[in-house]
Simulated assay, not measured.
Amino acid sequence: MKTIEKEILPTKQECTDSLKNVIDALYVLNGKWKIALILSLVQSPKRFNEILKQIDGISPKVLAKELKDLEFNGFIKRNVYETTSINIVYEATDYSLTLKSVIAELSAWGEQHREKIKQSMRK
């Protein structure tokens, strides 16, 4: 690594590897709803309509697609209960919890960004 004014800069290979990792993460978590869905289901398991009511603005078609994507990638589990009518409950997997620090950082950054925008609008 090179050092510029006491700051260690990554090598070209480290940058390339880091970029690949970020691209992979964004590919899996892309879109405006996936992290919100994971956060909702980490709080508690929910049925489809409960999720639909909690996440304002998502359409049923988009919700169905996003849930399938999250299930495919191991972030959520779809539980089917055969009662008089079939009940389907979605819940976060332990793998979802690996995003805890990522979600916390995004939340903190979002709050900071919102404040920055408010400040710039006051000028």
Results as ranks from 00 to 15, higher is better:
residue 91 E to S: 11
residue 63 L to E: 12
residue 33 W to F: 14
residue 109 W to Q: 14
residue 98 T to C: 04
residue 81 Y to D: 03
residue 52 L to W: 08
residue 8 I to M: 01
residue 79 N to A: 02
residue 80 V to N: 01
residue 85 S to D: 15
residue 13 Q to W: 09
residue 17 D to M: 06
residue 85 S to C: 02
residue 19 L to T: 12
residue 18 S to D: 12
residue 119 Q to M: 06
residue 95 Y to A: 07
residue 24 D to N: 14
residue 72 F to V: 06
residue 63 L to V: 12
residue 105 E to M: 04
residue 48 F to S: 04
residue 40 S to H: 08
residue 107 S to H: 13
residue 85 S to K: 15
residue 86 I to Q: 09
residue 87 N to G: 00
residue 28 V to I: 15
residue 103 I to V: 11
residue 117 I to F: 01
residue 100 K to G: 00
residue 104 A to Q: 13
residue 1 M to D: 05
residue 109 W to E: 12
residue 116 K to D: 15
residue 108 A to S: 11
residue 9 L to V: 09
residue 44 S to A: 13
residue 27 Y to A: 05
residue 112 Q to Y: 15
residue 82 E to G: 02
residue 77 K to V: 06
residue 14 E to I: 02
residue 51 I to A: 02
residue 111 E to G: 06
residue 80 V to L: 01
residue 61 K to Y: 11
residue 7 E to R: 14
residue 89 V to L: 03
residue 43 Q to C: 03
residue 105 E to I: 05
residue 62 V to G: 01
residue 12 K to C: 05
residue 71 E to V: 08
residue 48 F to E: 10
residue 13 Q to H: 12
residue 13 Q to A: 13
residue 87 N to T: 13
residue 81 Y to P: 00
residue 70 L to K: 09
residue 51 I to H: 05
residue 45 P to G: 06
residue 58 I to E: 08
residue 38 I to Y: 06
residue 111 E to D: 10
residue 45 P to Q: 07
residue 4 I to W: 01
residue 92 A to H: 06
residue 98 T to N: 13
residue 103 I to G: 01
residue 60 P to V: 12
residue 48 F to A: 07
residue 20 K to Q: 10
residue 91 E to N: 09
residue 69 D to Q: 14
residue 115 E to P: 00
residue 62 V to W: 04
